[in-house]
């Protein structure tokens, strides 16, 4: 899972349009997968630091909690219904979002696209 987080961090560095979208976002987000904690420290739309937990001292604004199987399905090119979106994952009971949800919603497009960065490319058949 750490590799996935690093993949997300590196992909964001390569996407100036996404960094511009998140230019006003400088907050820490906790991603928790099967109990494993990853603190994504955003600074002006970049993941400036990727800190591994567990930690009881790292402040964060909100958390996205899920399991590895669900996250890996989310990152497939065409996830099954319910696994295709973070809010849909919450609705089917495979994820939880806690903390300052309004902050997430204000930056929702940016954060949804960042979390989806490890997603496999879909092959388009013409």
């Amino acid at each position: 899972m750490l590799d996935r987080m690093k993949q997300m961090q590196a992909a964001l560095d390569r996407l100036p349009h996404l960094r511009r979208m998140g230019a006003l976002f400088s907050e820490t987000v906790l991603i928790k997968v099967d109990g494993q904690e990853f603190y994504l420290v955003f600074e002006k739309g970049r993941i400036a630091q990727l800190l591994e937990g567990p930690s009881k001292k790292t402040p964060y604004r909100f958390s996205f909690v899920t399991d590895e199987d669900a996250f890996e399905e989310f990152w497939t090119a065409t996830p099954k219904p319910g696994f295709h979106d973070i809010f849909a994952m919450v609705k089917i009971g495979r994820a939880e979002i806690m903390g300052d949800i309004l902050l997430l919603v204000k930056n929702l497009r940016f954060l949804k696209e960042v979390l989806a960065l490890p997603r496999a490319r879909r092959e388009v058949v013409e």
Partner: peptide, 29 residues
Amino acid sequence: WYDIDWFHRPDAHGGEMGAALVSTNISPY
């Protein structure tokens, strides 16, 4: 399953938030 007041407030763009919310309902296909 959301607060409809999120989408009309002076400190954020309701249209962008609304679009990001409804993207939950768009198929990956």
